[in-house]
Design a protein around this nucleic acid. Structure first.
Length: 480
RNA sequence: GCUCCCUUCGUCUAGUGGCCUAGGACGCUGGCCUCUCACGCCGGUAACAGGGGUUCGAAUCCCCUAGGGAGCGCCA
């Protein structure tokens, strides 16, 4: 017998993301979710969110919330769900009963001790550890109330062919598969059963998931067939490695999606990065969400694992900060300013600050940190900056700037710019000799947007006050 | 150990027998621009894991080797 998985072209595409709530939404899961979401969107189908919480020991509500929060931040909205498997136990029980009735499943009374011993022996004999079918052909209960699990009676002959959309044709011999447990001693169903029942019940047409599930696929197809259901199409996406080529873990830095928000990334930057990790469309690097939906195809996903490259993400981050609508960036930036206890409500307009800063920040965290002086007076000058720029030699320039600024008819960048140039010319100095001291007086340090833009944004009143402060500072250090 | 999967610059990748003395991007790097920091622009660096075939011709097809990974749970 040959069992082949295939797609059902006549049905509308329905994909799902099915995380188990045992932690936050991580990068790998987010990419799988993204691919599933893109595929559904591209084909005008539905994307379903299903929480696989059958492991009562490890599943937590906090994890569920963290996953939901991550999905929301990324903008991966689902059309149905979230469905919780723990709320479907009755349904699984019916299916398990059905499998027993049709002879596709049986009660197994083997003790954990026996199984453990069996496994050890097989390992010692260099065999693949697997269930030996002890109870497969009718076991007599050790006692009337003996505990038992339910096992799926896997075919012992033939092969299962998985026509994976990413890996191509993968063939498994049924002789390699053993009779897996589908219901625990306490009656609760296990993963391989619930995933199959749900995918069938929810009419999932395309299963896109991590390739750690590839080896489970033939078992799931066998259960599906026993149920008389048509297997969905499968796509197993390779895993994401850390920058060192090792499995991604906490020590590689951020693995949680929400941590990227904390670190100042725009969701579209992360999405673009994740999309390009394993998937490509020619030489194109930048994809808007709409372009991804239009161009994505699971067939174009690579077969090999890829390493996470923080530098490239940073590049994309800067790209989106630079190219996105300033209002949009401002909304995300205000979150980070809030974390610095800065209220961007008073002047200057935050989107104007974004326009001034967007070419010199790779993340919103960086932009927020470099923008504090627009909203708050700084306490101290940077030592080196002050030593070099706030001196007796630069005092005349600052004094003259104060005079000219006071007299300006309009407070506009062009006019301010001209005033700085005029000051330099009047003193016979190069522009930098005037602009840089002014910059330090305005920002407390040596880095800021173009000086005219900076001064303009700070506003006349505060500009004059900061010039006064700088002049006083010079006087105090010179006389000291 | 067994089964399954993977292998192009440091990294992400293009490439589906001739367009490849292998293209793009990130990074690194030389230069230009410049009021700081940046942005931008121009240039450079660097790869088909190894070995056998098939073919007039192979990064592309086949085989072997090596390396990496996943699975083998009353986890998902």
């Amino acid at each position: 017998m040959r069992i082949v998985s295939g797609s059902r072209p006549t049905m509308t595409v329905r994909t799902r993301f099915a995380p188990s709530p045992t932690g936050y939404l991580h990068i790998g899961g987010a990419r799988t979710a993204l691919f599933s979401w893109l595929y559904a969107r591209k084909h005008g189908g539905q994307f379903i969110l299903r929480i696989e919480d059958t492991d009562l020991e490890r599943s937590t509500e906090e994890s569920v919330n963290a996953i939901l929060e991550g999905m929301t931040w990324l903008g991966l909205e689902y059309d149905e769900g979230p469905f919780y498997q723990t709320k479907r136990f009755d349904r699984y029980a019916v299916i398990i009963e059905q499998l027993i009735d049709t002879g596709h499943a049986y009660k197994c009374y083997c003790s954990k001790e026996r199984l453990e011993k069996l496994r050890e022996e097989q390992m010692a004999n260099k065999e693949k550890p697997r269930y030996d079918g002890h109870c497969r052909d009718g076991a007599t209960p050790p006692s009337a109330d003996a505990p038992y699990v339910i096992r799926f009676r896997n075919p012992q002959e033939g092969e299962v062919v998985v026509d994976d959309l990413i890996r191509g044709r993968v063939v498994f011999q049924n002789t390699e598969l053993d009779d897996l447990i589908i219901a625990r001693t306490d009656g609760t169903p296990t993963y391989n059963l619930t995933v199959v029942v749900d995918d069938a019940d929810m009419d999932i047409t395309h299963v896109i998931r991590g390739d750690d599930h590839l080896n489970n696929t033939p078992r799931q197809i066998n259960i599906l067939r026993a149920l008389g259901a048509t297997p969905p199409s499968y796509s197993h996406v390779p895993m994401i490695l850390g920058a060192d080529g090792k499995r991604l873990s906490k020590r590689h830095g951020a693995v949680s999606v929400m941590q990227y928000r904390e670190e100042g990334y725009l969701p579209e930057a992360l999405l673009n990065y994740l999309a390009r990790l394993g998937w490509s469309h020619g030489d194109q690097e930048i994809f808007s969400i709409d372009e991804m939906i239009e161009l994505f195809d699971v067939k174009d996903v690579n077969k090999s694992a890829s390493s996470f490259n923080p530098d490239k993400l940073l590049w994309l981050s800067q790209h989106y900060i630079k190219e996105s609508d300033p209002q949009h960036v401002a909304r995300h930036l205000s979150y980070h300013l809030g974390r610095l206890n800065i209220d961007p409500a008073p002047a200057p307009e935050l989107s104007d600050v974004v326009k001034a800063q967007r070419e010199r920040a790779k993340t919103l965290v960086e932009m927020a940190a470099n923008s504090t002086f627009f909203y708050q007076d700084f306490e101290h000058y940077d030592d080196k900056a002050a030593q070099k720029n706030l001196t007796a030699a630069t005092r005349p320039a600052l004094a003259q700037l104060r005079e000219r600024f006071t007299a300006l008819p309009d407070w506009l960048p062009e006019v301010i710019h001209q005033a700085v140039i005029d000051t330099a010319e009047a003193l016979g100095e190069k522009l930098g000799k005037v602009a840089q001291p002014l910059r330090v007086a305005m920002s407390g340090g040596t880095v800021s947007p173009p000086i005219d833009v900076t001064v303009h944004l700070i506003g006349r009143e505060r500009t004059l006050a900061r010039l006064d402060k700088a002049l006083a500072y010079i006087d105090s250090t010179v006389s000291a």
